[in-house]
């Protein structure tokens, strides 16, 4: 397995989602490790703008050739934007998991939930424990 990209400045979950927090807004996606483990992403089911999502609860699912996987919310919030481009081009998640492959933007309900997430260096260590 190659070296996984884990950008600094984002927060991470054990289920391999990331969130980038900027002025009470959080952009959410799945990590490089997650996209690599899934393989070619072929379909993304996204929530609707206006939906509320809860920390660590499934809010979306991602299908690859091999399997279907739930995506869990890194933090609670209200969906204010979804990446419609993924409907036509789900492969953006493989090609650019932290940038063009973002999934949703939420208005964060409670920034204290950050303490339940990992920093980039913690997530790197966590991955080392998973990847033999």
């Amino acid at each position: 397995m190659g070296k996984m990209n884990v950008p600094d400045g984002l927060l991470y979950t054990k289920e391999h989602e990331w969130i980038r927090i900027d002025n009470h807004l959080g952009t959410i996606g799945i990590t490089d490790y997650a996209q690599d483990a899934l393989g070619d992403v072929t379909f993304v089911e996204l929530p609707k703008v206006g939906d509320s999502i809860r920390q660590f609860e499934a809010f979306s699912s991602v299908e690859s050739v091999k399997a279907v996987s739930d995506v869990y919310a890194p933090m609670s919030g209200k969906i204010i934007k979804v990446n419609d481009g993924l409907m036509e081009s789900p492969e953006l998640i493989n090609q650019s998991p932290y940038d063009k492959g973002w999934m949703v933007v939420i208005e964060i309900f409670d920034e204290n939930e950050k303490k339940n997430l990992m920093t980039a260096s913690e997530y790197r260590k966590y991955l080392e424990g998973i990847i033999e």
């Binding site: 072929t42 379909f43 299908e63 279907v68 789900p90």
Partner: peptide, 14 residues
């Protein structure tokens, strides 16, 4: 009887 199924979307039957 075994049949072939084609979906109307990108979603895969499994």
């Amino acid at each position: 009887r075994l049949v072939c199924l084609i979906a109307n979307s990108r979603r895969a039957p499994r």
